[in-house]
Amino acid sequence: MYGGGNIFEATKFDDLTTEDPVKLAEFEARIARGEKIEPNDWMPELYRKQLIRMIEQHAHSEIIGALPEGTWITRAPGFRRKMAQMAKVQDEVGHAQLLYSAAETLGKSREAMLTDLINGKSKYSNVFNYPALTWADSNTISWLIDAGAIVNQMANAKGSYGPYCRALDRICAEEAFHLKYGHDAVVHLATGTPKQREMIQAALNRWWPPIMTFFGPSDKMSTHTETLVRWKVKMATNDECRQQFLDMYVPKIWELGLTVPDPKLHKNADGVWEYTEPDWVEFKEVINGNGPCNKERLAVRRSAEENGAWVRRALLSPKAKYVKPLA
């Protein structure tokens, strides 16, 4: 995965009046020329704030997203699948490392980000507040949640912030394996025994509603983002991402003889997909802490942090001094 535009919201007001107009013009000209912004460059506060928030949420989504799939490592059918599932989960945790470092270059420490994850101040992708009930659910996440994430990450990799782009280039390269691995696992079940087909269809039915919310509220509901688009922070709208995802993956679901649990879902003659509007009330409810797994996800993360604390304390050199990563 896992993310980006999924939960990221723009701040309500683009107040740039307090920024130095000359520096702001230089900054905007650099982005317009297609040059990347690097950590030591002057940047408007709004740019810094939005990027920290977006990259931090993306990082949290990676480590929390490792939990539902991690659950299935020990119970994956067969040794090869256990190894592959483990490799994928390890990649996701590695993605979190890369992203935390990219966010750190903007001035928020990793300690502060992890604290805000555990105390619930920062969000992560809402889909991980749902459980992976069966092995088929895990496969559905590996294929379709990662597919959604790739749509997002490929768009963001063309953004304007250098460290985020460098991290995303590495991440996207690794996602190629995730997507193939997930697709292969789903195909295996879908082309298997009637029982296996039933399992994957049930998982798909459970996961479709969260998947449809993955890219975040519809454009009609989102606050204005023109400034963030001009600054190449937001590279595609939520609905554009959702349309691209549907266009790429619904045919791949259908060709396996599986169905999508949305009677309204179809592609119009003009190429635009129509679908039942996701339940944004439930989305809000879950993202604010009341989903089936919110408590567990944070508790597990917190226990990992707390149980490892003594090791980090023992290793810390008294001469250590924090310097934010360079790039």
């Binding site: 502060a112 105390n119 942090e305 924090y322 934010k324």
Partner: peptide, 13 residues
């Protein structure tokens, strides 16, 4: 309530 991480809990870079 969780306790905030102290500086350098995540070590040096």
């Amino acid at each position: 309530e969780p306790v905030a991480k102290t500086e350098l809990d995540q070590l040096e870079t």
